[in-house]
Design a protein around this nucleic acid. Structure first.
Length: 419
RNA sequence: GAGCCCGUAGCUCAGUUGGUUAGAGCGCCAGGUUGUGGCCCUGGAGGCCGUGGGUUCAAUUCCCAUCGGGCUCCCCA
């Protein structure tokens, strides 16, 4: 590696010209599908108030305790957003979006930041797209959310994913279940991992999520929340499953699925893929009926998901799915001499005004070099202009694909492309 | 926060059991074709062998440190 004086921070990366087309292709797909679902885009600041993230995501979550980039400037505490559900809810409350009527169907695309140790499929700056449906507690909202998520992967051609589904219950069911779970774990508390012991009081359900070997046998036989949901939550979950069945979206029920953010209630889901390696979660989400109120709004039910774009692109690589098209330009002006260059830069404008992409050499290189460049840029045509052409008014238009040339006036060339 | 692996040209990598001018392929630039791309041929540019220190007559090679990168655990997208 040559030493550059400056480079990106650990876990940050540039999207270079060879990579950007697939990003743009992915973004276009998301925008197009969102339009079909009638979701509206929301863009929020990269920086939020630290307190919002702490309240929204949860004081005890890993994200807040060790993964946020935060700093203080003057009297304000800033944090680089680690996820977008809390900020979107903040915007919803701040701007009274509920007053627009109905449920708000929002989607977003953008960078997030978490101060973790980077590895495959995990960067400190990464990109997510996602959806938040705010204002409906109807299972239809849950299912539309999931349907949109699945739709993106299907359209791209990623098929071998696994949708895991669970209900983490409403507060009433959850409190009851937590007691049952704690009663079950208590006799063996000392045998659990240190991590799980710490979670025992604060958030016992997260113990189910543990991957520590010593916890596994206890987790295996633990009581499941499904058996402790109240009627309302059971009904909701049943309806979600029923609607997914109607849409032929297959899923596996995973009673151990407990997600990392504190705000989830009832429906929780996760999309994993075996094409990703260790970091196998493509996307995840769920219902968060308490978050709007937590952040200072009226009690308002909501559901959403977030998906990792880098992970989606990794899956594409593994599956050899090509996103985006090869670069190309309609016309490459090959100019020889200063007069021709002057003529060239004027003529470029004419093509561009017609909607034709056009470029030329900026370095006064030889014809051979310009032709080589035209080839490298995937030009459809080379338009060759030197002293001769300027005098006679007949230009050489070369079809790069067919290797055929025509002698035409500039008006004939323009006419050819006008159609 | 912890563990393992790796730093040689723009990229992918050889190589030096410590010894004079450090190599290949691809890419880039130019010429062969004085106005014609892709294929071919020839030539060229481009490396303080990541950085600092140590051992040695001599270090890109051995040792230590450091920085950077990759993967893994934890957790998440």
């Amino acid at each position: 590696m040559a030493k550059a004086i400056y480079s990106t921070h650990l876990g940050f990366f540039d999207i270079l010209p060879d990579e950007s087309p697939k990003w743009r292709a992915l973004e276009n797909i998301i925008h197009e599908e969102a339009a079909k679902f009638n979701f509206e885009e929301i863009r929020t600041p990269i920086l939020e108030q630290t307190e919002l993230i702490k309240r929204g995501v949860g004081q005890l979550t890993d994200i807040v305790t060790k993964e946020i980039f935060a700093f203080t400037k003057g009297d304000s505490n800033y944090v680089l957003r680690p996820e977008l559900t809390a900020p979107v809810v903040r915007a919803y409350v701040q701007h009274h979006l509920g007053q627009r009527g109905g449920s708000q169907k929002l989607y977003y695309i953008g960078p997030m930041f978490r101060a973790e140790r980077p590895q495959k499929g995990r960067q400190r700056q990464f990109h997510q797209f996602g959806v938040e449906i705010i204002g409906s507690d109807n299972p239809i909202a849950d299912v539309e959310c999931i349907a949109f998520m699945i739709r993106i992967y299907q359209r791209i051609g990623i098929q071998n994913f696994d949708l895991k589904l669970n209900s983490v219950g409403d507060p009433e069911s959850r409190d009851r279940y937590k007691e049952v779970l704690k009663d079950y774990l208590k006799p063996n508390l000392s045998k659990l991992s240190e991590l799980s012991q710490n979670r025992f009081e604060k958030n016992p359900m997260r113990i189910l999520d543990s991957k520590e070997p010593e916890d596994q046998e206890f987790i295996k036989n633990a009581p499941v929340i499904g058996d402790h949901l109240n009627d309302e939550s059971t009904e909701h979950f049943t309806r979600v499953c029923e609607l997914l069945d109607k849409l032929n979206i297959s899923y596996t029920l995973d009673p151990l699925l407990v997600r990392g953010m504190d705000y989830y209630t009832r429906t929780a889901f996760e999309l994993t893929s075996s094409d990703l390696g260790s970091q196998d979660a493509l996307a995840g989400g769920g219902r968060y009926d308490l978050l709007v109120e937590e952040i200072g709004g009226q009690p308002t039910p909501a559901v959403g998901f977030a998906a990792g774009m880098e992970r989606l692109l990794i899956a594409c690589e593994e599956l050899e799915i090509k996103l985006g098209s090869e670069k190309s330009v309609d016309i490459y002006l090959v100019t020889l001499g200063e007069k021709a260059q002057t003529w060239g830069i004027e003529t470029l404008s004419k093509f561009r005004e017609m909607g034709i992409s056009a470029t030329m050499d900026y370095m006064g290189r030889s014809m051979k070099a310009q032709m080589k460049d035209a080839n490298r840029e995937n030009a459809r045509y080379a338009l060759i202009v030197g002293e001769n052409e300027l005098e006679t008014g007949l230009l050489t238009l070369r079809n790069m694909e067919e290797s055929e040339e025509l002698q035409l006036t500039i008006d004939q060339v323009l006419g050819k492309f006008r159609s």
